[in-house]
């Protein structure tokens, strides 16, 4: 990656002994973070891998016994885990495009306007980012709830009857809506900042050639901010595959519509903390983490031209 060469160019003069000794100060600065990195990232990952290769229980007299890939075979033939994976994949396919499109449209509109209203809107769209996911999900749980009624009030204005947002049939869309509400503002701010950093003289030529606003937006602006777009998709992808908080919170309001193993992360959580099967839970967590890592890596590889991460 070209980043490496930039770095070398910036600091490449370890000529004298003093200079090379000075470079060791780097260890001093990096050490505290490296310690946390080792203890709370490398160690848990390694430990999860170790646990996933062992079993411990009544059958093994409480001792850890090496079982090789048994747990992984079990996981990838476990219909509950596979169904959860399939479900978060469907969330990725729906939720990520919806969020990106709404964020992009909002950012493109805001970029062409400089009115007080547009500035206020920018702020309002962003505010949900400051709301904890738990509170956001809880709030939407109230809004959806037929018992509390705001949805019925709103639909009543239009002379309609509100659907039951918390039924098994509708819960998927209801969750998509919560996550969209929560995250669009953050993505919008990132896209907006990228749009603002484009040199306006780029558009002037296009305007002279008779391009209209839509053409400028789609043909010039979007391609120029593609690296930011790629990064947002990766954020959204990683977040969605780990889907946990919103369905977990909505579970008690939407009785029956969200089982305790709705997503792979919820399944791992329930396996660990409701059934105390830490070995199998670690397997599920490690397998999911691995898939997320590979998924985002493949995505970055496929879009390396757009992202500039060559």
């Amino acid at each position: 990656m070209s980043l490496g060469s930039r770095v070398e160019a910036g600091t490449a003069r370890p000529t004298s002994k003093i200079a090379s000794r000075r470079q060791r100060w780097g260890y001093v600065y990096v050490a505290p973070f490296a310690a946390v990195f080792a203890v709370f990232l490398v160690l848990p990952l390694g430990y999860a891998l170790w646990m996933s290769l062992h079993n411990k229980g009544i059958a093994t007299a409480g001792r850890s016994v090496f079982v090789g890939a048994d747990n992984y075979v079990k996981a990838f033939t476990d219909p509950v885990f596979l169904e959860g994976l399939w479900r978060v994949l469907r969330f990725v396919l729906v939720m990520v495009p919806v969020q990106i499109v709404v964020a992009l449209v909002a950012a493109l509109l805001l970029d062409t306007l400089a009115t007080r209203l547009s500035r206020a809107t920018r702020l309002l769209i962003f505010v949900p980012y400051a709301i904890p996911a738990v509170i956001g999900a809880l709030m939407w749980g109230f809004l959806y709830s037929p018992r509390f009624g705001p949805a019925q009030d709103v639909f009543g204005l239009l002379g309609l009857t509100a659907p039951n947002f918390l039924s098994s049939a509708n819960i998927f869309g209801s969750l998509v809506n919560i996550v969209t509400w929560q995250w669009v503002g953050y993505y919008m701010i990132i896209i907006y900042a990228a749009l603002r950093s484009i040199d306006p003289s780029v558009y002037e030529a296009a305007v002279l050639d008779g391009a209209d606003g839509r053409q400028i937006a789609l043909r010039i602006k979007v391609p120029m901010i593609s690296s930011s777009m790629v990064m947002i998709v990766v954020f959204a992808l990683i977040g969605t595959l780990q889907f946990f908080t919103e369905p977990q919170v909505l579970r008690s309001s939407a009785q029956g519509a969200i089982p305790s193993d709705y997503t792979p992360n919820m399944y791992a959580f329930a396996t660990a903390f409701n059934y105390s099967q830490f070995n199998y839970a670690s397997t599920l967590a490690f397998a999911l983490g691995f898939l997320v890592f590979v998924g985002s890596y493949v995505f970055l590889f496929l879009t390396r031209k757009q992202s500039g991460l060559k």
């Binding site: 990232l41 990952l45 999860a48 780990q242 946990f244 967590a285 999911l288 983490g289 997320v292 890592f293």
Partner: peptide, 12 residues
């Protein structure tokens, strides 16, 4: 790119 939730159970 490591999902932080994958770390919760081993961290526990």
């Amino acid at each position: 790119m490591v999902p932080m939730t994958a770390l919760v159970i081993p961290t526990f």
